[in-house]
Structures are given as structure tokens and as C-alpha cells.
Design a protein around this nucleic acid. Structure first.
Lengths: 194, 194
DNA sequence: GCACAAAAGTGCAATGAGTCAACTAAACTA
DNA sequence: TAGTTTAGTTGACTCATTGCACTTTTGTGC
């Protein structure tokens, strides 16, 4: 007989996880990623170091706690696009609407600086995206009736997932994203300098 | 008065480095990357573990010893392309002529298998390429008279450097590369299934 | 309410990568 | 030959990460 939709156990587990993630982010932002050890985080969250690894796969994962189900969203953006809309336009819309909104949120500024200034985290963040290459490629291929490992679909998937890394840190990320989607839509040509 | 173009000291240093790299590759191929410790390699090369780290920045770097001056080659391919040839065609030619030849060399088969079957090494190999994004982007921008951080040039550079990762492990890498360059040249379109 | 299984968390020891500082010895320089 | 680099050594150290045996808490069936 559970008091709430989820049992106390699961709530406590989630609370512990959250406490660890919060402590980690707080310490990372205060001191910098490299100056904080797992031990520090465990102490701050009042758990043992082994508990930290029961909740997170590694040190980098502590930084990217929230980002879940991106893969599902991406695939939905392709599969459930409005009729008549091209795959590329659907992806363009998704990236501009979802992605930009998150990354340019002023409260994220210091978080983004943390990631940008730590090579280890930058690499991890990129892998977080590109890890979904095959899934997104399969979704695109399904929509086109192509093989699930069709090279063109795989390339497009990878190139779209690469966009966050390419737009990061630009003064006008929105314009950069539009430019990149124009390349993917019409091909690359030397930028007009005038 | 040196007996040879370089002094004995430098030759010995190079020999030690080579001995370490050789021992590492031999052990990695024999037992697998994870089953070999730095200690094992140091012992096999008859040096101390600290000496290994004086020559190589980390464990992954032991695998990719040779690959140097790729950056210079890439930039040369763009800057010194035959007159009238577009930047994209020059890159296409370079990728097809140089990379393919290296990557499909039969003697490289077991090496490639080692890299492919070790996530850590796959990630490292990708970063080896994308690390040159800014340099290649600058070269492209120079040729076009654009800003060195022009988004379109940066995107093209990154997308070209991503090609090895996209073509890796395909039955027909050459066709995949052509397909990808077609995307970059003319834009992406749903692959024809017929 | 009680006994028992499952899961959360702890403590501890171990491995393995990578760093650091003080030292030795070979190799260059004058 | 004396003095200076510099490659390499030694050993101790930090830190992430894993495995194992153990305790505590929670959920479950009775």
C-alpha cells in the first residue's frame, strides 16, 4: 500500500540522486571541474563515494543530469512532422525551437561556461549528441523508405547532431543554425562577403 | 661535431619512443586495449612507467603514434588546389586519394579492428580529426575571403573531418564518401530506393 | 504486526591512469 | 676537462572506478 504514486523507496532514491547532482554542480561551478573530486561531492551530499557511482556512470555524467529523452524527441520530430514538411525542415524547426531556447537561457550561462572551459566535458557533451546518430539515421531512413544504414541518412543524422557543437559560443547562434541548414538543404557555397 | 644529421641523444630518444610504441601496439593487438596496462608496456619496452608518459600524453596516444601533419596536408589540399577547382572538389579528391588508400590497406585491418572495438579509441580517433576543425575552417575562409570563423566555413570543415567516422566500417567506403560529398555539394535529398 | 526478499547504502581494499619531486647518468658545449 | 642539459629512474602520491562483503531500509506476503 503506497502512500503516493511511487513508493517511498523510489522517492528516497531520487532524492539521493538529486542531492548528489546538486552538490556536484554547485562545487563544479564554484571551484571548477578539475578541482573537485568525487570524494568532495560525496561528502557534500553526505553519501559514500561508492553511492555516487551507483547513481552515475562517471564523473562527467554528474554534470549532465537532466538531459534525458533527447533521442525520443528527435525521432518524433522526424516521424511525426506536419504533413508536407520535408525531413530537413522538420529538423530545422526542432533545432531552432527546442535547442536554441535551452542553450540561450540566461540562467544557463555559467553552466555553459563550465562545459566550454573543460575539454573533458566538451568531448562528453559532443558524444552525448552523436551517440544518437544511428537512432536518428534509422528514423530518417524509415521515413524515406531507405535502408536503415543508408549512408546519406546516417550522414544527415550526424551532421544535424553536430550542429550544437558548431553553433556553441557564437554571437548569433540562430543565424549560424540557419546557415548550416541551408548548407544541408542546398549545398555549400563560398559565403558572400559583401 | 655530430656523426649523423641528428645527435646521438635525439636518436636514442626516438629509439626509446619507438620501442614504447611498438611494444604498446604489439600488446594491444595481442591482448586487447583494456587488458594491457601502462606497466605492461613499460616492462615490455624495458623502461619505467613515467618514461612512457614523458613520450606520450596518455594511453590512447600510444595507439596513434604515426599520424602527424594531417593538418598541414588538409590545409595544403585547400590552399594549393589546382586552379579552377572548387574547394569542395579539392577536398573530395584529397579524401578519396589519401584517406581511402590508408584506411583500406590490408595490413591495417587488425589495427582498424582494434580501434573499432574499443570505444575509448574510437572517441579518441574522432577527436584527432575534429581537433583540426578551426585550422581547416580558417584555410577555407581564407580562400573564400570570408571571416576566419565564418559559420559556413566552420561547418564545412567539421563535416569533412567527420567523414572518416561516417565511412568507417562500410562495405563500400568510396561510394559512401561520394554520397556525402554530393550532399555537401548539392544538398541532401531523400535517397532513391529504386 | 512479523518474517523475508529486494534494494539502497556503507566501508574497505584494490586496480590502473596519471603526476610530482628528487635523483642518476649519459650526452652535449665550451 | 668542467659544467650544463636532458632522458630516464625511483617511489610516493592523487584520483577515478570497480568489486565484495556487510548493514539498513523498504516493500510484500502472511
Amino acid at each position: 500500500m503506497t502512500v503516493s504514486p511511487v513508493g517511498r523507496r523510489e522517492r528516497k532514491k531520487a532524492a539521493t540522486r538529486q542531492a548528489i547532482a546538486d552538490a556536484a554542480l554547485r562545487l563544479f561551478l564554484a571551484r571548477g571541474y578539475d578541482q573537485v573530486s568525487i570524494r568532495d561531492i560525496a561528502d557534500a551530499a553526505d553519501v559514500s563515494t561508492t553511492t555516487v557511482f551507483k547513481h552515475f556512470t562517471g564523473k562527467e555524467a554528474l554534470v549532465f543530469d537532466e538531459d534525458q529523452d533527447r533521442e525520443a524527441q528527435l525521432i518524433a520530430a522526424v516521424a511525426q512532422r506536419t504533413p508536407g514538411q520535408s525531413v530537413l525542415d522538420a529538423l530545422r524547426r526542432y533545432v531552432l525551437d527546442t535547442w536554441i531556447r535551452i542553450e540561450t537561457h540566461p540562467q544557463r550561462a555559467e553552466f555553459i561556461h563550465l562545459v566550454d572551459s573543460t575539454p573533458e566535458l566538451r568531448a562528453y557533451a559532443e558524444r552525448m549528441w552523436t551517440r544518437h546518430t544511428d537512432a536518428l539515421a534509422a528514423a530518417i531512413a524509415d521515413v524515406c523508405g531507405a535502408d536503415r544504414d543508408d549512408p546519406a541518412c546516417t550522414a544527415l543524422a550526424r551532421y544535424v547532431l553536430e550542429i550544437p557543437a558548431l553553433a556553441r559560443g557564437r554571437h548569433d547562434p540562430r543565424a549560424a543554425i540557419e546557415t548550416i541548414f541551408d548548407i544541408l538543404t542546398r549545398g555549400w557555397r563560398p559565403p558572400t562577403t559583401g
